[in-house]
Design a protein around this nucleic acid. Structure first.
Ligand code: MN
Ligand code: MN
Ligand code: MN
Ligand code: MN
Lengths: 221, 221
DNA sequence: CTTAATTGTTAAGCAAGCTTAACTTTGTTC
DNA sequence: GAACAAAGTTAAGCTTGCTTAACAATTAAG
């Protein structure tokens, strides 16, 4: 049976194992979900019994094809809700994640299809993340790198943003950064790993904490 | 703490105690929620401790002002979602109740206010039920009676409909009855308590099961 | 290689929200 | 008003999803 808890585990396992291109570790998931690591071990066994996950003691957790399908369904619901709330109700891109985190667990396939249709089968959510299709395929994402790893004098376009902290997005709003903003790397400061960029004809400095959460695509360099 | 379960109990207690103008009984709530009556007794104690309910053994359950406020909040969320899904996504009035039954538990006040605003602070949901206002007031409902109790030769307007069974609403669609339809009572048949009405220049016969779930307002008689 | 630190697992226990079974109160009928 | 039926409550127990504490495996250092 799929429950809220299980759906959140699957999402977490998916995002860590694709990020790492490896098994997700107990501790990472525990931190991510703010749950004790013993609970993770426990749940890993249950999900394994249901065939959603491959789990070997001390070896981490990996989604089975079946589990990945389930995870993608939840992610699809999440991202469609985000875009819908923004486009229809005018919520800000810093506000939608929170709402979607709940709504994702309580929408029938029927409703999600209606939303998808209403939005014209969109490929990306408000933070630049791909929206899995109904058949489980994932829209192709541009070749991105972390802004923190961008090179001086090159020009980049902001493609996607970590949506887990609304404060980050509020910060971006304050300094005038949006998806598709063009940035030129002016300088990289070794001392604190901050990065100085030119956006909209203004120079701004971004801390490592910020540049570690922004993904950009090279457009000139 | 408010949980899904508790919100559903509060809603059920509210609807039964207003319907009866009396304390809600354990058995009624148990049937309504498809839960054993022992679970109801249990929960009645918990809700009572939280000050949401007045409960005396063997005497039924009644909402406190505090509990009523909480119940109305859930009902407000439910009905706003229903109308929103119908107006924006084009869901049928037979489809919205199911979805709203889940969404009602997972929407922040912030989101509900946005929906309310988007809809222009509506007074009634797709089934003719009043949408409680943010301050807890309830839009005035017309003076309605059960269609089952309507009198021959009088003319009535369909004001509201029980939304708990989508099959009823599908039936209404099939025979062409909508909110605000005008009906003239042609005949009442004692044998099976069915009622014969004229709508849109056609005569149709409605069983007791149907006429017990439709509320009408006298417009000519 | 041995030791220590880190990471992960097992065990025991708890709260919520149910269930069924046994029992008690209330209501109904004669 | 006694006897039975219906409604309501209590008790015991179950599952889910957590927790903390104790223990085991893995990894990293010296
Ligand atoms: Mn999100
Ligand atoms: Mn979630
Ligand atoms: Mn409804
Ligand atoms: Mn509900």
């Amino acid at each position: 049976m799929s429950t809220i808890s299980k759906e959140n585990y699957l999402k977490a396992i998916f995002s860590y194992s694709t990020e790492l291109d490896n098994n997700a570790s107990t501790t990472m998931i525990a931190n991510h979900l703010s749950i004790s690591s013993s609970a993770i071990s426990d749940m890993a066994k249950k999900l394994s019994k249901e065939g959603l996950v491959k789990y070997e003691k001390y070896k981490g957790i990996m989604l089975t094809p079946h589990g990945e399908k389930a995870a993608l369904k939840v992610i699809r619901r999440h991202r469609l809700w985000e875009l819908f709330l923004m486009n229809v109700l005018g919520l800000d891109w810093s506000e939608v994640h929170n709402e979607a985190e709940k709504l994702e667990h309580y929408s029938t396939d029927f409703l999600i299809d209606k939303i998808d249709e209403y939005l014209g089968h969109p490929d990306f959510d408000p933070h630049g993340h791909p929206i899995p299709k109904k058949n489980g395929s994932i829209p192709e994402i541009p070749n991105v790198i972390l802004l923190a790893e961008a090179e001086t004098n090159n020009k980049y376009e902001l493609i996607s943003v970590n949506d887990k902290e609304s404060e980050l997005i509020n910060f971006l709003k304050k300094v005038g950064l949006k998806l598709n903003s063009k940035l030129e790397i002016v300088d990289k400061l070794d001392y604190d790993n901050s990065i100085s960029v030119r956006v909209n004809k203004k120079n701004i400095t971004l801390s490592k904490k910020v540049s570690d959460n922004l993904f950009v695509r090279l457009i000139e360099g």
